[in-house]
């Protein structure tokens, strides 16, 4: 039950092979058509639902 935006953000996070996860900056670069606000809104939802988590700091994310 993801929206299109949530799905895009989640799939990018899921596909990142880095141990520290994907950086906020990379999400913004890959999703140029979304605003920073849109991306942060998606991240909040995904974290709240337990689909993703922050890693080494609040700007890196991995999927569960």
């Amino acid at each position: 039950g993801f929206t299109a935006n949530q799905s895009q953000v989640f799939n990018l996070i899921k596909s990142c092979p880095l141990a520290e996860g994907i950086a906020m900056q990379s999400l913004m670069t890959s999703l140029k058509y979304l605003t920073t606000y849109d991306i942060r809104t998606c991240l909040k939802f995904l974290i709240n639902e337990g689909h993703i988590f922050s890693t080494v700091d609040d700007d890196h994310f991995k999927s569960t």
């Binding site: 141990a19 520290e20 996860g21 709240n48 639902e49 337990g50 988590f53 080494v56 991995k62 569960t64």
Partner: peptide, 29 residues
């Protein structure tokens, strides 16, 4: 991996918390 043991520990703890949260959300329906 270029992560320190402390960073690896933090990531694993955050992962476990997220998994618990996911289970909680699924249980709520």
């Amino acid at each position: 991996s270029n992560l320190t043991p402390e960073q690896q520990k933090k990531i694993e703890e955050n992962r476990q918390r997220a998994l618990a949260r996911r289970a909680e959300r699924l249980a709520q329906g």
